[in-house]
Design a protein around this nucleic acid. Structure first.
Length: 930
RNA sequence: GGGCGGUUAGCUCAGCUGGUUAGAGCGGCUGGUUUACACCCAGUAGGUCGGCGGUUCGAAUCCGUCACCGCCCA
């Protein structure tokens, strides 16, 4: 039964259950026979995550697509799941341990720790699933996957081993972005550069063979740095080869202060003569640019830090080489173990005392921060595993060039290409425990075995070494290798895990069962659409493209839809630290999931940011209520679904008009969704429902519904029920809950059984069109609007009924007026509707198309005001006619514009001219007869 | 420094391939207990489409340029 008001909070959980019981989201549910497949893989949210506005937007849009295609009868799979989020998850659990005062990760050991993470995952992970459910996301939860589950881990293993055998994964010693808080490498995409107020310290490096004199610039060279402490690892000074100031010094040495190392002055274009002194210090172990300079000049690479970015010079052979042992000892005593910031201070102090500091300036510069840890990243020289991304990028770029995958909006392909063209080797190893452990084993001779399993490794190792092969932890293996007593060969497995994105890159096919050749893989791959934010193009889209092309030789998806970024009302990016986060869960609590979804869809215009405003959500909540009440009204008037009703056979023009409009709307909504113009689709269904169906159709129907023409009444009732059904269908992808609920209620009221739930109801095709009916109803609508306007402007009290006289109507129009007499009188608040050849005296007048609506208001009309109003309208019209005349009298326009346009302008002019004449006549009538 | 995008009503935004009287929602104002709905109804005000220049018969729409704002990459 119909409750008085629509209550989203109580309806939504019930509808969710209905879908669940019907397994309505299951792959292929509701599909037509031999249907085309339609598949979307969800961008896997972090297992630690909770629903934020970006998720809400993205998943709403995906759900609109998915529900739409499902209703069109396609075989739909929306594949859900989460990723394991290496660093984030490990962090969460470590924090929990700390809060409980439990042993740390290192204290409890790898195995115990991983157990903890798993049990955390089982209990608290994946909260987002319930939140997506709340939103109405119709993913096939029975197929839910997790990047660490067995199947996906198998895929990861297969990919790693194969890429390694193909030479596309390799181990290398390079500078990485090192996170000194988490003690792990991270990819450059996980680094955020931020502006920081720091200092620029200018050092004087004395030239070799001259006596240093701070007052004599010819005895030293000035270098400026934002990171003074790294000078301990300097191995050169670079100047621009064409810089006249320094040319004579290239090839000479300077003596590094404190350290005493003699390091060369090299000529390299990296040094910018315009900047600072034009000379720069080169620290290959601690700066990416310097590393390149170092390679070009074969400079030594001296690492001065440990993994916490604290000074580590004790026992550091690279550092000690070529230095006086006493000096090394002094430096170690002074600085050993100090972190980089303390060391910075101390180094500057010492150099200052010795006169080596020329000046220290305030300086704003960019500093790289770890996006998870929030600490400055340290370029750090380590052994890591790399993917040869350049090789994989080729086919991935080619596929987009050839249009096999299309970006929507197309512009984003630029971003994709830009990154792909400049792609760097992808560092995939992470010094974490939570993740896919790298399938690489090390032997005592430095040999590395990359295989799918320990058994495979054992076999290969036996061939390589002969004799027994056993496995141990890294520490144990190292000890065994040192121990002369050891018999056989001891191997240990790489302790590191893979970047989470490595497994995410396989998502479009690993979730479908790859490397098994499953039926799902065959049916749904390549998937249809990938929907995501632009910030993920590099992280994910590009990598899925690379992996998909490499391993399946097919693109992972036909279309990449890039949605807007959600911002707050003022357009600022939402972030917890700014405190401007709008919580979608709260919005759903307050206004319902349908309202939130509709808002997001309506605001998802392409190429724009989405600024979420509460008032907007409220407005669409009101829309849901409006629909609810309209349906309730229809029910009160016994507008019941009539299964025998055939819309194309409706007789009344009002019926034929609204059916025409409904089918036009269906076309618009269809096109909107097909072209990812969600806002257009949403606007279209909104306008139809509220402004046409509720405001006009229902209002115009009222007299007939109240009247006693039973045949007419019966048809209107059937039409009303039919159109409501159409609205429910078209609106369902946007507002699934209220529509499904009404689908049930209306069926119950009609005492019929629906063939399917609304979620599987067929989408409308092949529209009905009766343009003649539209002419008639539009005439009536315009007339009513004009009369209402006249009343308001003439200050006719709402309660007063006035007479309406229509002047100059054709026979046809007079017929319309007679037919709709009751409706017009009702909506225009008229006690009589008359037709006349002459306008009554002292009437307020308004030109409606080719007739004039008159409101005779003896004594009530302010003639001056009326004249002014009509004159204003006349002026506007004359302006318009003038503009059109300008065009039509321009020979070049007639020559160059196409025939249709010219014809259109002529028609417009004729219309305007006719209206002008009526207006002039109307003004003439206001003059007292003289 | 390189690239991308934005600037349209008080606010938030539509306006696709040039020809519209430049639209919507919110907000404002006026008036409303009409067989649903005040989360409503009716009416109404409000815009030199950021500036300048160009292409064109015709520019909010295309091109250039400047200004301001935002984002991405160095």
């Amino acid at each position: 039964m119909f409750e008085k008001t629509y209550d989203a909070g109580s309806i939504e959980p019930r509808i969710r259950e209905v879908w669940q019981d019907a397994e309505a989201f299951r792959a292929g549910a509701g599909a037509a026979k031999d249907a085309d497949p339609f598949c979307i893989v969800i961008p896997p949210p972090n297992v630690t995550g909770s629903l934020h506005m970006g998720h809400a937007l993205n998943n709403t849009l995906q759900d609109v697509l998915v529900r739409f295609e499902r209703m069109r009868g396609k075989d739909v799979l929306w594949q859900p799941g989460t990723d394991h989020a290496g660093i984030a998850t490990q962090m969460v659990v470590e924090r929990q341990l700390a809060a409980n005062g439990e042993p740390t990760r290192r204290e409890m050991g790898r195995e115990a720790f991983l157990e903890r993470v798993w049990s955390w995952k089982e209990e608290s992970g994946g909260a987002i699933k319930g939140q997506l459910d709340r939103l109405g996301a119709s993913c096939d939860w029975s197929r839910e996957r997790f990047t660490m589950d067995a199947g996906l881990s198998e895929a990861v293993l297969t990919v790693f081993v194969r890429l390694h055998k193909q030479g596309l994964i390799y181990r290398d010693k390079r500078l990485v972005n090192w996170d000194p808080k988490f003690f792990t490498a991270i990819s450059d995409l996980e680094v955020e550069s931020k502006e920081v107020k720091g200092t620029l310290t200018h050092f004087r490096y004395p030239l070799e063979g001259v006596t240093f004199d701070a007052d004599d610039p010819s005895t030293y060279i000035v270098v400026a740095t934002t990171r003074p402490e790294t000078m301990l690892g300097d191995t050169a000074v670079a100047v621009h080869p064409e810089d006249e100031r320094y040319q004579h010094l290239i090839g000479k040495n300077v003596v590094l202060p404190i350290v005493g190392r003699k390091i060369p002055i090299v000529g390299d274009t990296y040094s910018d003569p315009e900047k600072g002194s034009g000379a720069v210090k080169i620290t290959p172990a601690h700066d990416f640019n310097d590393f390149e300079v170092g390679k070009r000049h074969k400079l030594r690479v001296i690492n001065i830090f440990d993994e916490q970015a604290a000074i580590a010079l004790k026992g550091n052979a690279d550092f000690a080489e070529g230095l006086d042992a006493g000096v090394v000892h002094a430096i170690v005593t002074e600085l050993e173990g100090k972190d980089r910031f303390e060391a910075r201070k101390r180094v500057v102090e010492v150099l200052e005392q010795q006169g080596f500091v020329e000046k220290i300036e305030d300086n704003v510069h960019m500093v790289p921060f770890g996006d998870r840890s929030g600490v400055p990243i340290e370029p750090f020289l380590t052994d890591q595993w790399y993917v040869n991304a350049k090789r994989l990028a080729g086919p991935a770029m080619e596929a987009v060039h050839e249009g096999k995958t299309q970006f929507v909006p197309a512009n984003w392909s630029k971003t994709y290409f830009e990154w792909m063209e400049n792609i760097q080797p992808w560092c995939v190893s992470r010094q974490l425990w939570w993740g896919h452990q790298i399938p690489a084993w090390y032997g005592p001779d430095g040999k590395i075995f990359v295989e799918r399993s320990e058994a495979d490794v054992a076999r290969m190792a036996q061939i390589h070494y002969g004799g027994d092969v056993t496995f141990a932890t890294r520490a144990e293996a190292m000890a065994a290798w040192e121990d002369p007593e050891t018999t056989g060969t001891v191997l240990y497995r790489d302790e590191d895990v893979l970047d989470t994105w490595f497994s995410s890159a396989l998502w479009p096919f690993s979730t479908l069962g790859w490397p098994e050749r499953t039926p799902e893989l065959r049916k749904y791959y390549p998937t249809s659409v990938l929907s995501t934010g632009f910030d993920i193009i590099f992280f994910w889209v590009a990598r899925m493209m690379m992996m998909g092309m490499h391993f399946l030789n097919q693109v992972p998806f036909d279309t990449v839809y890039i949605h807007a970024l959600v911002r707050d009302e003022k357009g600022a990016k939402m972030s917890k630290s700014k405190g401007n986060v709008v919580d979608p869960l709260e919005l759903m609590d307050e206004f319902g999931a349908d309202a939130l979804r509709f808002t997001l869809a309506a605001m998802a215009a392409q190429g724009r940011d989405v600024k979420i405003a509460k008032a907007r959500v409220q407005g669409y909540r009101n829309f849901a209520t409006k629909l609810w009440n309209a349906t309730r009204f229809a029910d009160m008037n016994e507008c019941r679904i009539d299964p025998a009703f055939v819309p194309s056979e409706a007789k009344g023009t009002l019926s034929r008009w609204i059916i025409t409009e409904a089918s036009r709307t269906a076309n618009e909504v269809t096109r909107g969704i097909e072209t990812f113009r969600f806002n257009d689709a949403a606007a279209s269904i909104y306008r139809f429902t509220w402004n046409l169906f509720c405001d006009w159709f229902l209002e115009l129907s009222k007299p007939a519904l109240m009247g006693d023409n039973e045949a007419e009444k019966a048809e209107l009732r059937a039409v009303t029920a039919y159109v409501i059904d159409q609205i429910l269908i078209m609106l369902h992808p946007f507002m699934p809950f209220i529509t499904e609920e009404l689908w049930q209620i209306t069926a119950d009221q009609a005492g019929i059984q629906r063939d399917t739930l609304l979620i599987h109801a067929p989408w409308p095709v092949n529209g009905f069109e009766d343009a003649g009916a539209a002419d008639e109803i539009n005439f009536v609508v315009d007339l009513i609007t004009a009369v209402r306007s006249l009343r308001a402007e003439s200050n006719v009290p709402a309660a007063t009924e006035a007479e309406v006289v229509v002047v100059g109507g054709s026979r046809l129009q007079e017929g319309w007026l007679a037919y709709h007499d009751a409706a017009i009188r009702r909506l225009a608040r008229a006690n009589a509707l008359k037709v006349s050849d002459v306008a009554p005296p002292n009437a307020a007048q308004s030109v409606v198309g080719d007739v004039v609506a008159c409101l005779p208001l003896a004594g009530l009309v302010d003639l001056e005001a009326e004249r002014a109003r009509l004159a204003k309208e006349l002026k506007r019209l004359e302006g318009e006619i003038g503009k059109i005349d300008g065009r039509l009298s321009n020979p070049k326009f007639l020559e160059k514009a196409d025939a249709d346009t010219i014809q259109e302008q002529r028609e417009k002019r004729a219309e305007a001219e006719a209206k002008r004449e009526k207006l002039e006549a109307a003004i003439g009538r206001l003059d007292p007869v003289s």
